[in-house]
Design a protein around this nucleic acid. Structure first.
Lengths: 366, 366
DNA sequence: TAAAATTTTGTGTACGTACACATAAAAATT
DNA sequence: AATTTTTATGTGTACGTACACAAAATTTTA
C-alpha cells in the first residue's frame, strides 16, 4: 500500500511543499473495506453495526473483506465522533470518618487528572460507613442523575443489591471495589480475602513456637463489612489447621480504642499471645498497647495507614498486608473510562495480588 | 452552554428525527477560543503551537481566552489527525537462553494486543545476554531503521552508552527497564536494587539465631549485569551491619549447575549456612541441592520462574522477591505508546515496589 | 405495465485538530 | 501615490467513523 507523504524542502517560508508517495505499512480503514467489497462506506458501516438495510449479498462480501484485511475500527475516530460528555459518579465511604479511604480519593483524583483532556464529568460523593441510610440516600441521589457509570464500594450488601435492582433497566456501567458483592455489578476489583488470611497465617507460623497462642482480632466492626473480616479469619484458620495444628487460636471482637484495656485483662487471665492478627487497618492502637504493656507479641495487620507505617518501621508491627485501596479505586475508574471512551472490554473480576509489607519494602509502596 | 441533542422519536424507520437543544456541560474547543478571542481557528492554532505569524495583540487575546476557558486540546482529535504509523522497536535478551525474560515477552504481546487497533508497528528482536557483540549488532540493526521509539534492556553499560550516543541527534524515544544505566535514556523502569537487598536481609534476619552463618550467592554471573547483583549484596550487607552485626556473612560466586558440588564442599569444611541469599533468579538448583544434602538452610531468592515457584510451594524456598519483569516490560511499552499517541508525559524513572512472595500469596501474582 | 411502497445503497456532513494555501492588512520601498 | 515586500489572518480540507438523508434499485400492488 502506498501512502501520501509530505516533505518540507522549502528554504523560505513562502515556498511550496513537495508532495509525493512512499511505500509504507498502513492500517486498513473503512474506505479500504468498501473498495474491496465494491460497496459504499455507508453500507460497510451498516454491516459493522448490524443496523440492517443491507442485502444478504452485500453483507456477505463486506464481512469477507473485513476478514481478509483484518479490519479493526479506529477507536480514536470512534470516540471523536461520539462527542458526548460521559457522566461518571463515584460513591465512596467518607475518608474523614475512616482514613482507610483516603488513598482511594487520591487514586481517583490522579485518574481524573490523567484524563482531564477528555469529555468526562466525574463527581465524587461520600457516605458514612457506619450508617446504612447514608449509603442508601447518597446512592439514590446519584441514580436520579442517570449517570453513564457508577462506581461504588458495596459495604452494605442488601442495600447494594437494592441499588442495582433500580439500575436494572438503565445501561449504567457499574464497577465496584474493596468488598465483593452479589449485586450483579459489571466489575469487581479487590483481593481474595480467604487467601489474604492464609498469607497472614503463613507469615505468623514462620515465627511461632509449637503450641503458640494466636489471637484473631476484629476491631471496630461497625465500620466494616463483617463478611470481609470473617473471610480473612476463615483463611487464617484454614492455614493453621493444615500447618500448625498445635497452636491455639482465639477470636476477639472489640473497639480499637479499648485495646489496652482488653489486652491487660487477657494478661491478668494469663493469656499471653505469641501473635495477634488484626483483620483490618485498625492495628496501630493494638501495637501501641502491646508496646506499653511490654508484651513481646508479634503483630500482623492490614493497610499502609500513616500510623501503621510508623509502627512497622519502629518494629512494633511485623507485617502489614497491603490491600492497595488506591490501586483498586484508580483501576476501577480507569477501566470504566477506557471502556466508555475506547470501548476497551471491562473485565468482570480483577483480583489484585496480596502484597506483603515489612519495614524495608514499605517505602517502595508509598 | 447549549449542545445539539438528537432524540429518536420515530415510530417507523422512515420518519424523520426531532432535533433540539438541551443545556449540558461541554468541553471547550478551538472554535470556542477563537470566538472568545475574536480571531479565526487558524490563529488560535498558531498561538498554541507557537508557529509565529501572529500579532502581539492577537496572541495576547488568544492566550487570555485559553486561560479563561481552561482550554486543553483534545488528544483524540490530535492523534486522529497525526495518522502516521509509529515505529517501535524492542531489544530483549533472548528468553530461550535465559528464561527470566519470558514474562517480558508476554507483557509486550499483551500491550501489543491492547493497542492493536492503533497505527503501530511494533517489532521485537533479541540478543544473547552472554554475548556483548550480539547486543551491539542487534542494536545497530534497529538504529538503521530510525524507529520512533526504542525499548531495550541495558545489560551492557558501555555498549548502551554507545548506542545512545548514536541516537543523540535523532528524536527517537528511548525507554529501558530491568537494569539502570547512565546512557541518557528518556525512561527507566525497574526497582531500587539496594533496597531490594535490604528487604531480603530483613526477611532473613527474622528467622536467624544470633551468630548465624549467612551466604550470599552470585550465580551464573556471565548472564547478568554484575552491577545489578552487587547492588543487591550491598543492600543486604548494609541491613545486616545495622541489625544483625553478630552474623557472619560470606559471598560466593559459582555456576548454578554446580551448586550441589559447592555446597557439599562447604559442608565438608564444616561451614553450614543458616540462610542463603541468591541474588538472581537461579535459586532453584540451590534449593534442590540443599534438599538433597538434607540441609536445613533457609533460602531467599528472586523471581517467579516456574521452577522457583514449585520449590516455594513445596517449602524448599522461603521467600522470593518478585522483580515483576512482565510489568516492567509492559509498562515501558505502554508508556511509550501513550506518549506517542496521546502525548502523555513520559516519567523519567518508575521504581516498582519490591514484592515479597511466599507460598501463600504466590498464586495471586501469577 | 404503471404507480406506489419498500428495500437497498450512496452521499454529505460532523466530530476537533492541524496545516497548506489563499487572502487581507500593514509596512517598506520605489 | 503606486508598487512591492512582509506580516497577519482566514478558509478549506484531511484524518476515520457515524449517521441522517437523498437517491437508486427492487418488490409489491393496483
Amino acid at each position: 500500500m502506498y501512502v501520501h507523504i509530505k516533505i518540507a524542502l522549502r528554504l523560505t517560508q513562502n515556498e511550496k511543499y513537495f508532495i509525493f508517495d512512499l511505500p509504507m505499512k498502513k492500517k486498513y480503514v473503512l474506505k479500504d473495506i468498501a473498495k474491496l467489497a465494491g460497496v459504499s462506506i455507508g453500507t460497510v458501516d451498516r454491516v459493522i453495526h448490524n443496523r440492517g438495510r443491507v442485502s444478504a449479498e452485500s453483507e456477505k462480501r463486506v464481512k469477507a473483506a473485513i476478514k481478509e484485511l483484518h479490519y479493526v475500527p479506529n477507536p480514536v475516530a470512534q470516540s471523536l465522533k461520539n462527542n458526548k460528555v460521559h457522566q461518571i459518579r463515584i460513591l465512596l465511604p467518607d475518608p474523614s470518618i475512616d482514613p482507610y479511604w483516603v488513598p482511594c480519593e487520591h487514586g481517583i483524583h490522579e485518574i481524573k487528572d490523567e484524563f482531564k483532556a477528555f469529555d468526562l464529568d466525574i463527581e465524587l460523593s461520600y457516605f458514612d460507613p457506619v450508617k446504612v441510610n447514608s449509603f442508601k440516600e447518597a446512592g439514590e441521589a446519584i441514580l436520579d442523575q442517570k449517570p453513564d457509570s457508577l462506581l461504588f464500594v458495596p459495604l452494605f450488601e442488601k442495600e447494594s443489591v437494592l441499588l442495582m435492582e433500580k439500575l436494572k433497566n438503565s445501561n449504567t456501567l457499574t464497577s465496584t471495589f474493596n468488598s465483593p458483592s452479589n449485586s450483579g455489578v459489571h466489575q469487581f476489583i479487590g483481593q481474595n480475602l480467604f487467601l489474604s488470611g492464609r498469607v497472614a497465617a503463613k507469615l505468623a507460623c514462620d515465627h511461632l513456637p509449637s503450641e503458640a497462642n494466636v489471637g484473631i482480632l476484629h476491631l471496630d466492626e461497625s465500620f466494616n463489612n463483617a463478611l470481609h473480616m470473617q473471610e480473612k479469619e476463615k483463611g487464617f484458620r484454614a492455614y493453621f489447621e493444615e500447618n500448625c495444628p498445635t497452636s491455639k487460636l482465639y477470636t476477639h471482637t472489640w473497639d480499637s480504642s479499648r485495646s489496652k484495656y482488653h489486652l491487660e485483662k487477657l494478661q491478668n487471665d494469663s493469656l499471653v499471645y505469641d501473635i495477634l492478627f488484626v483483620t483490618n487497618s485498625k492495628i496501630h492502637p493494638v501495637a501501641m498497647a502491646v508496646h506499653e504493656l511490654g508484651l513481646k507479641t508479634k503483630l500482623i495487620g492490614y493497610d499502609l495507614l500513616k500510623e501503621n507505617v510508623v509502627c512497622l518501621k519502629e518494629g512494633r508491627i511485623d507485617f502489614l498486608i497491603h490491600q492497595a485501596p488506591k490501586t483498586q479505586a484508580s483501576l476501577s475508574l480507569k477501566n470504566v473510562i477506557e471502556h466508555l471512551l475506547f470501548k476497551k472490554p471491562l473485565p468482570e473480576t480483577v483480583l489484585l495480588p496480596i502484597e506483603i509489607i515489612n519495614s524495608e519494602n514499605v517505602d517502595s509502596y508509598l
